[in-house]
Simulated scan of single mutants.
Amino acid sequence: MSEKTTILCVEDEAMLLEDLKEELEDAGYRVLTAENGAAAMSVLGDEKPNLILCDMMMPRMDGPGLLTHIRKNHPKLNDVPFIFLTAKATREDLIEGKRLGVDDYLTKPVDYDLLLATVESSLGQIKRIEQRNKKQLLQLYNSFQKQRAVKSGKVRVSFVTGKPDSIVPLTSALTELGCQVSMISEDQLARQSFTLDDVDILFLVYSKIVHYYLKFVTSGKPKDWRGELVLLTPSNFPPDKKASLVENGVEDYIEYPYPPVEIFKLVMRRIQGKIPEGQSSSREGASASSSSL
């Protein structure tokens, strides 16, 4: 096991925490420790572990509280497996944990052979998902490049976001693939001081401001606009909010961590239907006379 694989253990029983640390380090893992959820959040401010092993019942911030905080406020940690340690795995506990997004449970007293097997299985699943995504992405990228070779013109992509730095990996990848990428600030959205005339795909990064002004975007689209409007949402987006988005005219949404495969599929669809530069189209004619949002 690579020593770069890091596990955060969160446990308020000092002796058990030390035992967990020792067992995991003997198995080749790098181990971080915290005595409760609040201390764990301090650790997570500087580190992104590969897996979190957390007691359910602790002072200051318990396991469910920590998991809820992470899933709600730290999307960068959504791909990190989260395993609960519990001395009372009641049916209600299991249901609560599953609803919060926990990946697995281990009961106390800890069976260390089962612990190591569970950790290895969780990390292995993440690795398989990453490998599958890379394979799909490579296939899509090759197809993308072939399409670019026979189609002229660039796919024009715009992002509405208040935090451009958070999507730099995505915008960089799209730029590298030949897309024309631009940014629209939330302030521009609020003032409705932009147009969709030169946009093929509009990605809106979900926020309270985006949600509030979404209806102005959907209702203000040029009548003959043939682009696509896609919302980039947090992970585990509530069903009631999804229903609200559909009512507001959102055509599609992609949940964090915004899988590149899903993003590139949209771009591929645009490329396949892209009208070569120099040829007129009803969309271009209509766009020239459409008004600002």
Results as ranks from 00 to 15, higher is better:
residue 2 S to Y: 03
residue 4 K to L: 14
residue 4 K to R: 13
residue 6 T to S: 14
residue 7 I to K: 02
residue 8 L to K: 04
residue 9 C to K: 04
residue 10 V to L: 09
residue 11 E to H: 10
residue 14 A to P: 06
residue 14 A to G: 07
residue 15 M to C: 05
residue 16 L to S: 09
residue 21 K to W: 02
residue 23 E to G: 00
residue 23 E to S: 15
residue 25 E to K: 11
residue 27 A to R: 12
residue 30 R to Y: 13
residue 32 L to E: 09
residue 35 E to H: 14
residue 41 M to Q: 10
residue 41 M to Y: 02
residue 45 G to I: 01
residue 46 D to E: 08
residue 51 L to C: 08
residue 54 C to D: 06
residue 56 M to K: 06
residue 60 R to G: 02
residue 60 R to P: 06
residue 61 M to N: 02
residue 63 G to W: 01
residue 65 G to V: 06
residue 66 L to P: 05
residue 68 T to L: 14
residue 70 I to F: 05
residue 75 P to E: 01
residue 78 N to I: 13
residue 79 D to P: 00
residue 82 F to K: 03
residue 84 F to M: 06
residue 89 A to E: 09
residue 93 D to L: 05
residue 93 D to S: 09
residue 96 E to W: 00
residue 99 R to M: 08
residue 99 R to E: 12
residue 101 G to N: 10
residue 106 L to V: 07
residue 107 T to G: 08
residue 110 V to R: 04
residue 111 D to I: 00
residue 112 Y to G: 06
residue 112 Y to M: 03
residue 113 D to T: 15
residue 115 L to F: 04
residue 115 L to N: 10
residue 118 T to D: 08
residue 122 S to K: 15
residue 124 G to C: 09
residue 125 Q to C: 01
residue 126 I to H: 06
residue 133 N to K: 09
residue 135 K to R: 12
residue 139 Q to K: 11
residue 140 L to A: 12
residue 140 L to F: 04
residue 142 N to E: 15
residue 149 A to E: 15
residue 153 G to T: 10
residue 155 V to S: 08
residue 156 R to A: 14
residue 159 F to C: 07
residue 162 G to N: 01
residue 164 P to S: 04
residue 166 S to H: 12
residue 168 V to F: 03
residue 168 V to Q: 12
residue 170 L to D: 15
residue 173 A to W: 02
residue 175 T to L: 06
residue 178 G to L: 09
residue 180 Q to W: 07
residue 180 Q to E: 12
residue 181 V to M: 01
residue 182 S to C: 02
residue 184 I to K: 03
residue 187 D to S: 09
residue 191 R to Y: 08
residue 191 R to I: 04
residue 192 Q to C: 10
residue 194 F to G: 04
residue 195 T to M: 03
residue 196 L to A: 09
residue 196 L to V: 11
residue 197 D to H: 12
residue 201 I to Y: 02
residue 207 S to T: 09
residue 214 L to D: 07
residue 216 F to S: 13
residue 223 K to M: 12
residue 224 D to A: 14
residue 229 L to F: 02
residue 232 L to K: 05
residue 238 P to E: 09
residue 239 P to M: 03
residue 241 K to G: 03
residue 241 K to V: 04
residue 243 A to I: 08
residue 245 L to T: 06
residue 247 E to K: 13
residue 249 G to Q: 06
residue 249 G to F: 07
residue 251 E to I: 01
residue 252 D to N: 11
residue 253 Y to L: 13
residue 257 P to Q: 07
residue 259 P to L: 06
residue 260 P to N: 12
residue 261 V to S: 11
residue 262 E to W: 08
residue 263 I to T: 00
residue 265 K to H: 13
residue 266 L to Y: 09
residue 269 R to I: 01
residue 270 R to C: 10
residue 272 Q to E: 14
residue 272 Q to F: 00
residue 272 Q to T: 02
residue 273 G to N: 08
residue 273 G to L: 11
residue 275 I to R: 05
residue 275 I to Q: 07
residue 278 G to L: 10
residue 278 G to Q: 10
residue 286 A to G: 14
residue 289 S to F: 15
residue 290 S to L: 03
residue 293 L to T: 06
